[in-house]
Write a protein that binds this DNA or RNA. Structure first.
Length: 605
RNA sequence: GCCGACGUAGCUCAGUGGUAGAGCAGCCGCCUCGUAAGCGGCAGGCCAAGGGUUCGAAUCCCUUCGUCGGCUCCA
């Protein structure tokens, strides 16, 4: 998220010329000014706050007089006015004013936000830059394009309510988002990208492919996995379990509720209360739906005395947790109130911690590759405001995490203050087919819980020592990962995950020998462990069967008809819907062998 | 939770004050057809819920619930 304050918190600099070849960022920032100019003309008395360029576009925050708000129909009017200003080729003119003069100027214009920004500038600032575009004047560092004529490929996209200075205790402003490009063609390409993202929307595909549902009747943020979605989840989980066994993890299970005292010990009650559901009464004692799995794994660790020889102990669980999320944030599978984390907690000696972190990073990269994610961005989050543990502990842990990443030649982005309350974390975001980043894996160093629960091990020296703990999820949650996977593949799952791997479409549906041939092929495939279905419903043409199978994203379609029955050579016509080949003559046995190989290799697409 | 938009059949959507519609899906027939939709029929709606205005409300107003786009927050 851009720092809204930075872009317009202008300091006086040298006079800037409009660059010969403006960057997209400059173009978009200029487009933001243009939009603000149009808004101020159309909505007298509107105050403007900040308007930076952002990824793919720009926004500007406004406050309309008398608490008025923009509605989406206003966008067309504003855009039309912008177009007029574009035609006039109004120059962007820079001036540098003494600070007091600028303050007086904006005060006179009734632009309180600008006055406020000037007031907040450090004392060292004595001159500030402003830009004029016709009658519109804005506090701004620049640079800008030469004139508004450069801003032809601009489109306003949506309005949003936002909190002043990003703090929800503050008043709400109106924000308009837009996008701007050098050319009409680039703008169209961008809009097409948005349309493609919409076509890939996992909620859309989830319904079309009958994978999952969420419903009002059930309750927001709660997911029903339908048979096909459930099948895919099961396959993902099978792979996950197998990988974890090989990776030295031991699978455990824990209940969905526990006594509230457990959450008091873990300090979740203190630090995580707003995400936890109200306690329920069990025999007069408060119990709590679990928002995290860690305390359970700690209890497993703690159930008996541990030796240094046992460490590291890696306890993994597909643990379903429940967290209160505010109604406005719920979103399909990506943001829900009940979800299953692919969780694990690693208990180890301090001397093992770095190696363990490195292992987890390698392990997750391998896991992502299996699902077709080759590119991953890595973020390191440091101590937040609300945290337990000393600054020294935090700094040491942060350094350990960073060292392991750097050792692997990984570029790390630091997110200051974004860690969990019990320790710093590494977040891994996968890049999908459209280049979008999705938060999946998180690796969190935790030096607090071992203390909270007083867990120990007996060291080589015979004394008791405190283990350290790494909390990690790779896929993140089954729900979110599934949503991301759907969008990444646009529903075209790799063969090993495809709910139906092959449809055997019959040409005729009323010729018993043809239907029998189709059914025979499907059952041979089923016997070989493949998921095949016959499409022979009465009243449909072959074209309709093919179409249905393709809309259902079935990877392979076999066509059989009367001619195949006559020939009797066990060779069928194969269509590979992902590669777009059709009419390939292939023997059924060979087909089965081919698909089995593809499944066994878990070929990612 | 906040700002905006939207809630009409399983799905996608028409319908802006005067008797609720279409396409797809479903069901029933007819056609037996070779690589993305054959043809015909039937059935399907308390127009999100509640309240109001009106002779009359899917349509106008209010409230609630939900969904969507953002904000804040997050796996």
């Amino acid at each position: 998220m851009p720092d809204e304050e930075v872009d317009d918190a202008v300091e006086a600099g040298l006079p800037l010329e409009a660059p010969e070849t403006p960057t997209l960022e400059i173009l978009r920032h200029s487009a933001a000014h243009l939009m603000a100019a149009a808004v101020v003309e159309l909505f007298p008395g509107a105050q403007y706050d900040v308007g930076p360029s952002i990824q793919d576009g720009f926004f500007y925050n406004f406050q309309l007089p008398d608490g008025a708000t923009f509605s989406e129909t206003d966008l067309a009017r504003i855009e039309a006015r912008m177009q007029e200003l574009v035609k006039k080729r109004i120059p962007f003119e820079r001036e540098v004013l003494p600070r007091e003069e600028a303050g007086a100027l904006f005060a006179e214009l009734g632009q309180d936000f600008k006055v406020d920004i000037i007031d907040r500038m450090p004392d060292s600032v004595d001159r500030v830059g402003i830009y004029r575009t016709g009658d519109f004047v804005d506090l701004c560092r620049g640079p800008h394009v030469r004139d508004t004529g450069k801003l032809k490929a601009t489109r306003l996209l949506r309005v949003a309510g936002v909190y002043w200075r990003g703090d929800e205790r503050n008043q709400q402003l109106q924000r308009i988002y837009g996008t701007a490009w050098f050319s009409r063609e680039e703008l169209d390409a961008y809009l097409e990208r948005l349309a493609e993202a919409e076509r890939r929307d996992h909620r859309r595909i989830g319904r079309d492919l009958d994978l999952f549902s969420v419903s009002e009747e059930l309750g927001g943020g709660l997911v029903l996995w339908h048979p096909k979605g459930g099948l895919i989840r099961g396959l993902i989980e099978d792979h996950w379990r197998e990988a974890h066994r090989r990776g030295g993890y031991e699978q455990v299970f824990s209940p969905h509720i526990a006594q509230r005292t457990l959450w008091e010990t873990s300090k979740h009650v203190d630090f995580y209360a707003e995400s936890m559901y109200s306690p329920m009464d069990v025999d007069g004692r408060p119990y709590q739906l679990k928002p995290m799995n860690c305390p359970f794994h700690i209890l497993i660790y703690k159930d008996r005395l541990r030796s240094y020889r046992e460490l590291p102990i890696r306890l993994a669980e597909l643990g379903t947790v429940y967290r209160y999320e505010r109604s406005g944030v719920l979103h399909g599978l990506l943001r829900v109130r009940g979800f299953t984390q692919d969780d694990a907690h690693i208990f180890c000696r301090p001397d093992q911690i770095e190696e363990e972190i490195g292992r987890v990073v390698d392990f997750s990269m391998e896991m992502f590759r299996t699902f077709g994610f080759d590119q991953v961005s890595i973020y390191l989050s440091t101590k937040p405001e609300k945290a337990i543990g000393s600054d020294e502990q935090w700094r040491a842990a942060e350094a350990a995490l960073e060292r392991q990443l750097r050792n692997r030649g990984i570029d790390v982005v630091i997110n200051p203050g974004d860690g969990a309350f019990y320790g710093p974390k590494i977040d891994m975001k996968v890049h999908d087919a459209l280049g979008r980043e999705w938060q999946c894996a998180t690796v969190q160093f935790d030096f607090s819980q071992p203390e909270n629960f007083g867990i120990e091990y007996i060291g080589e020296d015979g004394d008791r020592h405190r283990p350290v703990m790494v909390h990690r999820a790779l896929l993140g949650s089954m729900e979110r990962f599934f949503g991301v996977l759907i969008e990444h593949y646009a529903g075209h799952f790799p063969l090993w995950l495809a709910p139906v791997q092959c449809v055997v479409a019959t040409v005729q549906d009323d010729v018993p020998a043809v239907v029998e041939l189709g059914e025979g092929i499907a059952s041979r495939m089923a016997a070989a462990g493949l998921r095949a279905e016959v499409s022979a419903k009465a009243g449909e043409r072959l074209g309709a069967r093919i179409r249905d199978a393709k809309l259902q994203r079935v990877p392979y379609i076999v066509v059989v008809g009367a001619k195949d029955v006559e020939r009797g050579d066990d060779v069928v016509s194969l269509e590979d819907t992902r590669r777009g080949t059709k009419g390939e003559a292939v023997a059924v046995d060979e087909l089965i062998a081919r698909l089995r190989t593809e499944v066994e290799e878990k070929r990612p697409s």
